[in-house]
Amino acid sequence: MNVIESRGLTKTYGNLKAVNNLSFDIEENKVTGLIGRNGAGKTTLLKLIAGFLHKTSGEIEVFSDNPFNSIKVSSNMIFIDDKMSFPASLHLVDILEAAGNFYDNWDAGLANGLIDYFNLNPRQPHSSLSKGMKSAFNMIIGLSARCPLTIYDEPTTGMDVAVRKDFYRALLKDYLQNPRTIIISSHLLNEVEHVLEDILLLREGQKCMHMPVEELKELAICLKGKAGIIQELATGKEIYHKENIGKDSAYVVVKNDFTEDRLQNVKLSGVEITPVATDELCVFLTSRNKGGIDDVFDRN
């Protein structure tokens, strides 16, 4: 069953198409990573799914309903980001109690356990929390609400490395016990990819890739060696990235449609074959032009 179905979804701000003709489905109980550069349209898309924004054109259905102004979507969905605002006078414990009244599946035991683990003082007002602690608190609400559709927009902003690790571990453990549909947006793919099943990669408001993480990992390989040999190997292949090193060496990132035997031969001919980290590949796939930052400095 699909929890989200989107067809030709578009959202414009003035002349800018923040989300541009986007079609995709998200299946029930999958953890999907929404990945893209700054300004790729991640937050806009998540807000369209959550029903916080009105689409400009196209179709979006969440739980078979138009999410905008839908009580069904609102009561089955939670949207966590770093701009969540709570009344300044409320203490954490009051906010948790109110959240418990709102969400049917609220797990107070989990919420209290996490508050305790992350050393948050329940008698503290929300406004006095540091940036990282706010993110941790919001994350606790997101986990404890156990909403059938849980959306995290850049959930780890401001968290230190240890808290990030704990957060993703908590997310995974809770997901194993209570499977649900989860979407996490991030531009730090390497810290989140292990918990993901699928990746939806956005480039300038459009869909760049939507596939299982494990497939994306095997999509490309990096070949490094003498420029001539590399050139020959890359001919006819889909090239994601190309760079010359030193005088006559080069490396290319190409689509890996080589056979096992062919790769073995290539290796024996002295070409170095390495995997391409998923986050690196995503940068190549979403680059706006073929060059890189070096080109800015090489103008002269």
Partner: peptide
């Protein structure tokens, strides 16, 4: 697949594969 996911800290779909 769920035990493996927990043990290796990975998505259960990966473990199932």
């Amino acid at each position: 697949q769920y035990q493996l996911a927990e043990m290796f800290n990975i998505n259960p779909a990966t473990a199932a594969k």
